[in-house]
């Protein structure tokens, strides 16, 4: 049987320039560009956002404090590249970006991340910088501004639910109804 499910992408959202990118969830998409578009629709319809990143889930590596010792030993060779590092310091909450490391494998990146950013984190996540697809910096308005001036209304703003109950109770008979 063919797997018709599209690959999953992690989504990282930055709410303001003073805050780090936070992992807010994931979307399915055929590729990075579509993932970014989907992420915008799923996660940035209403709230503030200045930058959005997506990365294929298959390229995201993660380790907890308990798992550090079991990390495979670093490869002796391998192309060095930048990894974005995210950590989490509470069981609830989101992975927040803390910085970058240069490493030659995901395991190497996790080890270096755990050494460089160890204050109170208990889980580290690394993503090769090169696989991240980011919202274009020069197109901020098109991506996010529209969401700012759109009013957000809670369900309770509308009378619909009460009205439906009244209609069902026969309080608003339609014209022509006996």
């Amino acid at each position: 049987m063919t797997d018709t499910q599209w690959p999953r992408f992690y989504v990282f959202k930055q709410d303001s320039p003073d805050f780090p990118h936070l992992n807010c969830g994931s979307v399915h998409a055929s590729d990075g560009e579509m993932a970014l578009l989907n992420a915008r629709d799923v996660f940035v319809r209403r709230p503030d956002c200045v930058s959005l990143w997506v990365a294929p889930a298959s390229r995201v590596a993660e380790v907890t404090v308990e798992g550090l010792a079991a990390l495979e030993s670093p490869a002796t060779s391998g192309q060095e590249q930048d990894y974005e590092v995210f950590t989490k310091s509470a069981s609830k909450g989101q992975h927040a970006r803390v910085g970058k490391v240069v490493a030659n494998s995901p395991a190497d990146a996790l080890r270096k991340a755990s050494e460089a950013f160890n204050s109170d984190s208990w889980v580290w996540m690394v993503v090769p910088s090169a696989v991240i697809v980011a919202s274009p910096e020069d197109e901020g308005p098109a991506w996010f501004e529209a969401a700012h001036d759109r009013p957000f209304r809670h369900q309770s703003f509308y009378r619909t639910e009460r009205l439906i109950r009244e209609i069902k109770a026969g309080q608003h008979d339609p014209p022509g109804d006996d």
Partner: peptide, 19 residues
């Protein structure tokens, strides 16, 4: 006001047409 939102619509539908 509408033009800003439309820029995003176009990006979305364009991406689909290519795919």
């Amino acid at each position: 006001k509408i033009a800003r939102e439309e820029m995003y619509h176009l990006r979305h539908t364009q991406a689909w047409i290519r795919r």
